[in-house]
Design a protein around this nucleic acid. Structure first.
Length: 570
RNA sequence: GCGAUUGUAGCUCAAUUGGAUAGAGCAUUGGCCUCCGAAGCCAAAGGUUGUGGGUUCGAUCCCCGCCAGUCGCACCA
């Protein structure tokens, strides 16, 4: 049995002996402050209250009730009735041993046998990815990686915006505003440019607008020419998206855009009609959600077209039928909360949620200090520009610290640091917080930042190298001694890794893990400063290098779960 | 107006979901490279947790009122 389980059982037994029939206290949490021991149990107060007893007396009686498990050095009562537990150093060392050589293995496989679909990133075709896409992509990908580590079978699906009214406008623009040469070397930038031109034309020229509609109808009817152009748009867009995803280290299992579900829309509305859920109002088909306290949802527009509510319902039907997942997680910005609540309710009424939970993980918008990002104001920052700028800033420092490295090595490292900085800046905040974008914050390289964590890891790597050169052997197999407080604190924190991963996964909040890793790095840096490793006497040296190796393992594992690169050298 | 959500140090954020003296980073001030990597470490200063009530042994966290910000509220997604 593991240490925690042992102590929990002891506490529970103690409580039951003290207070028959009152349920045992078995909740132990790590203490915030080492003055309060390593772990603490705060149940005595609540239980004493219920039983009408004095909490301090109860806590004292609990400790006296059963002999202390050998792994505990001491247990004492403090304050109103806290039970503070101090673990023996050998028990902590044993706990670390139990983590195994590969800390990935210590992550509880709570998702084994469960399938989950995660729908994230989902940019629109024919538009460049901009800064507004980064949160869904980075947060979604971290949740994806964390859930996989927890044993879930994850299907990451990129629900591309590849179908909709914009394509009529786009096709007209493509045919009239581009030269032969431009069409031959088509880019997303060109597509965006012609879209804007064509869109403006619809405002000033009614005949143009009619033609756009006509092209859209032709496309939807399967016209070969328009279909070919549409496919070209997707191909061009995917090329650019792939380039960015590769830089970000993001991969998907599926790229099923809205167009994939297009053939299922009519039957989905038919089903809603059959079930008596859809009714006609003002020429449109709607689902009334008044009894759920929500606005009506339109499932078929008065012009006969479908909208995103219908597409999303069809998507759920398709996913439930094909994958039968335990859960579908959507990662989008906060503006879509109402929409998700609406169509989740409709799915429930359709009986789609019996085995599949639908979850909307929303995040706050990213905005500028004095404005929101908007295409109309022309203040959007392209995602690629952001990544480039990050690499440039990192490059300056890399050049200073490694003038002897090759050009290629320096470029590669700068990229890893830049991407790490950007991702960490996002992942270290609770998703629901609104992010006010500034270059300084997004690309921070010091303090609580991605590079700080990467740096800690790189330093350990070089320490490990030196150890192998001078001493040899396998650091991870050395005996742990934990001779001082800093070492014990570090070891105790290492033991918390699996809970941090699980909490981050359960809550869909990657910042829980980011926070854990940051604290680990801080504890390590502190330890590193105060405790010499290679110069210590052999037994201590071997133990400390083992601790370093463990920290490095956890850092690598954790950063990887966040999708942050871990360069060997910085 | 209705609904969601936020308000914590000058700024950006934490606080293991109700626990002990509310913690970090940035910025400011002072110290540490003759010593395993200074993208680092140590220290100082910085707080009536928006505000007023309530619940209880205990509240940043739960409940009610008010103030302020952000987002949404029928055919774009």
């Amino acid at each position: 049995m593991d240490c925690e389980g042992l102590v929990r059982t002891w506490l529970k037994d103690s409580f039951e002996i003290t207070l028959p029939g009152c349920g045992g206290g078995d909740k132990i949490v790590p203490s915030k402050d080492d003055r309060f021991g390593d772990w603490q149990c705060n149940d005595a107060m609540g239980i004493a209250k219920k039983a009408g007893k004095n909490p301090r007396e109860l806590a004292t009686a609990v400790i006296a009730a059963c002999p202390l498990p050998s792994i505990l050095e001491k247990a004492e009562v403090a304050g109103p009735g806290f039970i503070n537990l101090t673990l023996s150093k050998s028990a902590v060392a044993a706990g670390i041993r139990a983590m195994g050589a590969d800390c990935h293995l210590s992550i509880p496989q709570i998702g084994a046998g469960k399938k989950v679909v995660i729908d994230y990133s989902s940019p629109n075709v024919a538009k460049p990815m901009h800064i507004g896409h980064i949160r869904s992509t980075v947060i979604g990908n971290a949740i994806d990686r964390i859930r996989r580590a927890l044993g879930y079978e994850v299907i990451a699906d990129n629900h591309l915006g590849d179908w909709g009214t914009q394509f009529g406008i786009l096709i007209m623009g493509y045919r009239h505003f581009l030269t032969e040469a431009e069409r031959a070397a088509l880019t997303v930038e060109l597509l965006e440019m012609v879209y804007v031109k064509s869109y403006n034309a619809t405002k000033s020229d009614p005949a143009w607008l009619d033609q756009c509609r006509e092209e859209l109808v032709k496309l939807q009817a399967g016209d070969a020419d328009n279909l070919a152009v549409w496919k070209l748009f997707i191909e061009i867009s995917m090329k650019e998206f792939s380039r960015i995803y590769q830089r970000l280290g993001v991969t998907f299992d599926l790229y099923r855009g809205e167009s994939y579900y297009q053939p299922m829309l009519a039957t989905t509305v038919d089903l809603l009609k059959e079930k008596g859920l859809a009714t006609q109002s003002e020429g449109a088909w709607i689902v009334d959600l008044k009894e759920d306290g929500l606005e009506v949802a339109i499932v078929r527009k008065s012009d006969g077209g479908f909208n995103y509510t219908t597409t999303d319902i069809a998507t759920v039907r398709s996913r439930v039928e094909e994958f039968n997942p335990e859960r579908i997680i959507y990662v989008t910005d906060e503006r879509q909360q109402l929409h998700f609540r609406q169509f989740f309710h409709i799915c429930e009424k359709l009986g789609l949620c019996e085995k599949t939970a639908l979850q909307h993980v929303w995040f706050g918008l990213m905005r500028l200090p004095d404005a929101t990002f908007s295409t109309r104001q022309g203040n959007v920052i392209k995602l690629e520009t952001l990544l480039d700028e990050a690499a440039v800033r990192a490059r300056k420092i890399v050049d200073e610290s490694h003038p002897d490295w090759s050009e290629a090595d320096r470029a590669k490292l700068a990229e890893a640091i830049g991407i790490g900085a950007i991702k960490y800046a996002d992942l270290s905040h609770d998703p629901i917080t609104m992010i006010v974008f500034t270059w300084e914050r997004a690309l921070a390289l010091e303090g609580n930042s991605g590079p700080y964590l990467q740096y800690a890891n790189a330093r350990i790597n070089s320490l490990l190298d030196k150890y192998r050169e001078t001493v040899g052997g396998h650091p991870l197999e050395n005996t742990l001694i934990l001779s001082n407080g800093a070492e014990k604190q570090l070891a105790l924190w290492l033991l918390q890794y699996s809970t941090a991963v699980q909490r981050a996964g359960d809550l869909c909040k990657p910042n829980v893990l980011a926070d854990y890793l940051y604290q680990l790095s801080q504890l390590y840096s502190s330890f590193y400063q105060s405790s010499p490793v290679l110069k210590a006497e052999p037994a201590i040296r071997d133990s400390r290098i083992c601790l370093c190796a463990l920290v490095s393992q956890v850092l690598r594992s954790g950063l990887t779960l966040l999708g942050i690169p871990t360069p060997e050298r910085i």
